[in-house]
Nucleic acid binder design. Structure first.
Lengths: 340, 340
DNA sequence: AGCCCCGGGACGCATAGCGTCCCGGCGGAG
DNA sequence: CTCCGCCGGGACGCTATGCGTCCCGGGGCT
């Protein structure tokens, strides 16, 4: 089989791109059906005509059907799409990517999904599903799970299938909200996850762009104290990774702070803490919630994709050893490039 | 693996053509290296520029190298070509073709090789090699082998590797020569086969476009009689298949005979005997050699390819049950179409 | 009722790749 | 030794494919 694939790569490498575009179209339809040609092309950053030709082809193959509201996968299309995941993994050598990263980074398990979440948002959904699969393996009865924020984490929460989870799970936000959209705040995500897992939740409900003194006062409040205590006791932590640019844009980091960050070589963010490319913490924003020193001994699952995030993910991975990393193909390849 | 292939056929069927042309180029180079671009393109019935592009690609893949006398396969190219045989069998579903024919025709074993011998002469070389592989299984010490004529049979003889054959083999022509080129006469082929197998041979050395009365007189000659006796006693028979058109052109069949042949629905020829599409003998040219009724009880191996010969091959296969049929992809697909 | 997104049609254009010719060189045959 | 033929590589115009783009009528959701 491996021989088969390498032979094919030798004799007809162009099938890679072919499969790529078609698989991403199928994936997109799978997650957004029914969906129109224009929406599809804009979201995939492909020209409308290209998408159209491929759509036509896939329809002729009996993989999708057109309805008044757009195209949908036929049952055969769904089946093919499901099978295609494994196929693409083989064809593009994901196993090799994963092993490469596992060797170079202190992570026990790396999972790579197809695509580039920087270009195709549905890739995040796939990453979400992969995280959920890992959670199924790890989570035990009575666990406390701390969840981070961000768009990727939101997809993790959305990917949880609400059945078959152990009892007595409690989900808490890993830290206060970051002034983002409510859907991507750690609080919201913790709630969604808890509900879907049939567990309990506690939230902080506190913005963390407050004055440091205000924060230290709030921390003493019994309700907050209880949540912070739960966070410290969490056995499992799931979180995304931020890049410096992203953070600077999303939260209005002042000129001073930004200057300090860049001068100290900060490239990555996690829970409001900033790390340089060696994984050393170089800065943090005053906040409440989990602290880096709390992470030791916990099962850490990081999830982040997109070629642009590769450097940041590397930095965070070096910060300390982890249980698992879920990323996408674009980030994985970039990371291996960067790490030699 | 099977799943893999069918999935690929579903999601990217165009790789078929891609592999096709590249494989046939590799095959051609393998058999004729070193060879030039122009020769290649004319023999493959492909445009020069197409061949050139593919050649460029294959060179970039490190599969072939250009010398002053033309292109040759690199060691890696040879290895890839060898592996590609199996790969192409899988990819194009030859196993299914073979099983389909085995079910529909009275043949114990069908072997399909890639390509169309009507378009690419090197496909005949592959068929030849396949026949030789079968002979290796079948031939025993002291066997008498009767060989037919034709270009395909010439390739069978050429494909015999002269070592490891049982002792005491005798090869005889199945019938007199047909006025063809000497290289493709049954006599010549029998000699070549015998020499390569390290065995003995006897030839007829008699053209069979003689007057019937002359023939019947020659048959009584002791030397001829002995050969004819050997032919009758042969345990293994290897032969090609002719189409009506081919025969009409190659031997100048007179208007009368041709009219009779067409009116009786003759479509196929073997050993100078003509068969209609049901495999019923409808005509024969006066000759000496093997007769249809002699075939029963012998191990028969038929070899013929090319889409144009499909109908003829079917007819001959129906004529009586056989040990093996070696054909090519084009003929196999056509045969299955014709047989529903 | 209105708006937006849907699929499908149409059409011009750009470009990749095709077809074709040519050249200088080398090797083998005579 | 010479010549012919085939070799690879270069060049170049053209065509046809497929891309980009706009438009239309329709239907569902708000």
């Amino acid at each position: 089989m491996d021989r088969f694939v390498s032979l094919q790569r030798k004799i007809a490498p162009e099938i890679g791109e072919l499969i790529d575009i078609r698989y991403s179209i199928l994936r997109h339809i799978h997650f957004s059906q029914p969906v129109g040609r224009r929406t599809l092309s804009s979201r995939l950053a492909e020209k409308e005509r290209t998408v159209r030709s491929e759509l036509e082809f896939l329809r002729q193959q009996g993989l999708l059907a057109v309805g008044p509201a757009g195209v949908s996968l036929t049952p055969e299309g769904e089946r093919t799409f499901a099978d295609l995941g494994e196929y693409v993994r083989e064809l593009r050598g994901f196993a090799r990517l994963e092993r490469g990263l596992e060797e170079r980074l202190p992570v026990a398990r790396v999972v790579v999904v197809a695509g580039d979440s920087g270009r195709d948002p549905t890739v995040k959904k796939e990453m979400g599903r992969a995280v959920v699969r890992i959670l199924r393996d790890i989570v035990e009865e009575g666990d406390i799970i701390a969840a981070g924020g961000g768009t990727t984490m939101a997809e993790v929460a959305a990917a949880i299938v609400p059945s078959g989870w152990p009892k007595g799970i409690t989900v808490v936000p890993a830290r206060g909200s970051l002034g983002e959209e409510v859907e991507t705040q750690a609080d919201t995500i913790a709630v969604t996850m808890a509900k879907r897992m049939g567990g309990a939740y506690r939230v902080l409900n506190v913005p963390d762009d407050l004055h440091p003194e205000t924060i230290s006062r709030i921390v003493d409040e019994p309700r907050i104290k209880e949540v912070l205590d739960l966070i410290k006791r969490a056995r499992v932590v799931v979180h995304g990774v931020g890049t410096l640019e992203e953070m600077a844009k999303r939260r209005g980091i002042t000129g001073d702070a930004l200057e300090i960050l860049t001068s100290r070589g900060a490239v990555a963010e996690m829970f409001g803490y900033y790390f340089d490319s060696d994984g050393k913490m170089v800065y943090y924003t005053p906040s409440m919630g989990i602290r880096p020193e709390d992470l030791a001994g916990k099962k850490l699952i990081a999830v982040a994709g997109g070629a642009k995030k590769a450097q940041a993910v590397l930095a965070v991975m070096k910060q300390q050893s982890r249980e698992a990393l879920v990323t996408d193909e674009a980030a994985a390849r970039r990371m291996l490039e960067l790490e030699g």
